[in-house]
Every structure is written in C-alpha cells, then in structure tokens.
Write a protein that binds this DNA or RNA. Structure first.
Lengths: 227, 227
DNA sequence: CGTTCTACTTGAACAAAGTGCAAGTCGATC
DNA sequence: GATCGACTTGCACTTTGTTCAAGTAGAACG
C-alpha cells in the first residue's frame, strides 16, 4: 500500500533523485517502482515509457534554467550567461550528458520544440532555420563547453571532498597515465615542472582559463588562414 | 558454415559497418552474428563483451587519426589540426558520439591510456595530470566542437543528397520550429531576412564561420570581465 | 446503503538482448 | 589414427522494458 498516491510529478522527482545518485544505469523501472513503494508497472499509467520519463526529467531541469532578457542583452552576452546556467545544470546532473549526447552534439534538430525550449535555443544563439548552420555550431559549442567545464569542476570537487573510493580510482588512472606520459618529452617537461608551464592555472579557474587559452590559439589559426 | 574464419579484426570491421549503417541501436550481438554468418556467441571467444567491442571499434578509428608532428608544431596548431581530424571521424561515424559521450564530455579521465591514445591527447592539448584541469577543458572543447561541426556538415549532406525520408522528417521538424519561432521577434527577423543577418554563411563554411563567430563573441566577453 | 464508474494499481508474462557454458567440430600435430 | 587446442554452436539463464487482464478503492449517483 503506497503511502502517497503516485503522480507524474513524484515519479519525475524520484527518477531525478535516482539518476543523480546512481547515474543512468541506476535507473530502471523496477528500482524506480521500489523507491516509489509501488509496482514497477504502475509507473506506466503516468508515463508512456522509460525514454519518455528521461525526456520529462530533462525537461523539468531544462525549464529551471533562467533565461536572459533578450530584449536587453545581445545574443553573445546571452550565450555566455546560458553557458553558466548550463554549466550548473550539467554539474548537478551529469547523467544528462549521457542520456542526451545526441541532442547536445547534434543540436536541437532531434529535440522536441516547445516555447521554453526554443527560448533557450534563441538565448543560446540557435536559430531553428536550416540555413543557419553556423549558429547551430555555436549552440553546440556553448553546450559542449558548458558540459566540459562542469565535468572539470565536479572532478575537482570529487577530488577535494569525496575522499575514498572515487578519489582512489581517479588517482590510480592518473598515475598510470602519468607513467605513460613520462615517455613523451613535452608531457614529461610539463609534468616535472607544472608551475613553469604556460598552461598552469588553479583548478577553480579552469573554465575561464580553458576558454582563454583555446580562444587565443584558435584565433591565431584562423588569422593565418583566411577564407 | 562460415565462409571466412572469425577474427577479431573481421568482427570489429563488421561491427563498425553495422554501427555506421544503423547507429548504436543497430548493433546487437545476434545481428552481428548473423552478419558474420555465425552464432552470436561465437563473437565472445574473440571479444570480451559488447562494451569491449565498442571500445575496440572506437580504438580502431581513433588509431586512424593522423598525428601532427609535435616536434615541429606548437600545441595550439596541433589542436586545430586535431579538430579537423576529429571532425572527419565524427562525421563518418556519428555513433561514436553517442557511445562515448562520457569520454568526450568528461575528458579522458575515464578512458584507457595507451601510447597512441595519449599521443592524441597531447596533440589535442590534454595533459594527463590531475593539476591540469584547464587543459582538460580545452580538450573537451576541441572534441565537442569538432563533433558539432561534423554533425552540421552531415546534416547538410543529408539534406542535399539523401532526398526522401530523412529530408522530409528534418524539414517537418524545422517547419514546426519555424512556426514557433515566428512568435519571437528576434528569431522572426532573422528568419524573414536571413541574407541580412550577421550570422549568414554558406552551409559549407559553417565550421569555420561558427568558430570565428563564437571566438569573436566570447573573446569580447572575456575581455570585459578579466580574472 | 448499494451500485456503478473512473482512476489507478498489481502480478503474471512476454520479448529483446547480453552472456555463460557444456558439448561439439575441425584442422594440425604427433 | 589418436590427440590436442583453437574455435563454434545451441541452450539457457538473467536483466530489463513493456503489455495486459484482472483487481481495488474511493467518489458519484440512485
């Protein structure tokens, strides 16, 4: 006997909890049912399918993103502010990246379009017209970069706080990578004297620093080869 | 009776063919077996698991990537050349994005490290040391952007060549998006006079144009807010 | 108070897919 | 011709998404 009645909202909420806790693999209909104190199949009255549930969960989070005022701010500013918002979202819910990689990489062509959805696209610099492929690329960059930065940050946090399993596994991997890296002269130099390397930056400034660096580098490249 | 003997190489090759043709969903051990003219489980003698097979397939493609000469070229140049290579790879094998989104977004922390692997990382500007989170972000950017551009290009190609189902479906989606977009003043303006818009660019120059645009825009943003 | 209807829940069961395993085959070697 | 090891096969088990007929519980109605 379920304490609370099953509702679409409670299902979505619980699904997000499970996903945040255990990742994409942690969510299956039976574990979800157990967590909800009801049969796995009861969910199907409220939600069409598991895929649909994932979409609904993502939608929920997507709709929590604050929109910049496009009347006041130009789209470049908007894109940057979007990047920050998305950064936070991917940081809190890493499974989003896995579940919707196609959307993130291939743009919103495959995604459903509702008003808020499209407003976010607009804010992120995306235009839903077939001619505007360039802007689609920009959109992908904004999302991709936000996700990458989020991952970086969450990695840092895991290192600093978790203490234990995750840290150990990560350090193992990195130690192994380090061993291999010592065979490469450039890597070796960087590893042996990180402070002197031109890319050195505190963990927390990784996002902005990474941006700056790549911007400088690629700007140069493009300047060299016009057209 | 299989015509050819089953080999790890043939399995990987066939898996890539299936993946290229039907995407991630198109590959299951039974269909793979059928295509190889042998029992599904025969594959397991050559390959540890399906996940492992995906890694092997990705590795195969990964190893086909040409490395810039790091002795001659600085790492920024190398990163750009990598972007081009990766661009081509994601363009040819879109399922890579789906299967390895975690690697692409979260960096090589979770990936296995062999010599070539690490050489590519180095070329892409990644250093396998825990302090260098900034470079990891750069790595993610290069990959993410390459994938986005590849998707854009493959979308264009699909539109121009496929003629039929894919095009129709895409146009439907876009038409719907367009309808909704007309409610947004900025989008509407862009859609009604795309030629005049500052982002207009030929489909084929989408990659470079997208880069230029976002670089300009974010460069400005960073210039405004130092530190 | 009983009936009915609607909203919701349940357990059994099916299908798809990854995979382990015991038994078989086939070709080379002794 | 016997043996051995490499390789293959079919069966079967497990997990997981999903369907469905049958149930229940509470509100509405007579």
């Amino acid at each position: 006997m379920p304490r609370d009645t099953l509702t679409r909202e409670r299902i979505i909420q619980t699904a997000i909890e499970l996903l945040d806790a255990d990742g994409l693999e942690g969510l299956n209909m039976r574990s979800l049912g157990k967590r909800l104190d009801s049969a796995a199949t009861a969910v199907y009255w409220h939600v069409k399918s598991k895929d649909n549930l994932l979409v609904l969960a993502a939608d929920q989070l997507w709709h929590e993103i604050a929109l910049p005022d496009l009347g006041t701010v130009d789209w470049r500013t908007a894109a940057t502010s979007m990047a920050t918002e998305l950064y936070a979202m991917f940081d809190r819910h890493p499974w989003l990246v896995q579940a919707f990689s196609a959307h993130l990489f291939y743009g919103p062509g495959k995604a459903r379009h509702d008003d808020h959805n499209l407003a976010v696209y607009e804010a992120a610099g995306f235009v839903g017209a077939e001619a505007d492929l360039a802007t689609a690329a920009v959109f992908t960059f904004v999302l991709g970069n936000a996700a990458g930065a989020a991952a970086t940050a969450s990695l840092t946090r895991r290192l600093n706080q978790d203490g234990g399993n995750a840290e150990e596994r990560f350090r193992d991997t990195m130690a192994k990578a380090r061993d291999i890296a010592m065979d490469f002269p450039r890597l070796r130099a960087r590893l042996e004297n990180p402070a002197a390397a031109d890319y050195a930056a505190g963990p927390d400034s990784g996002f902005e620093y990474g941006l700056r660096t790549i911007l400088d580098g690629l700007q140069d490249q493009l300047a060299d080869k016009p057209r």
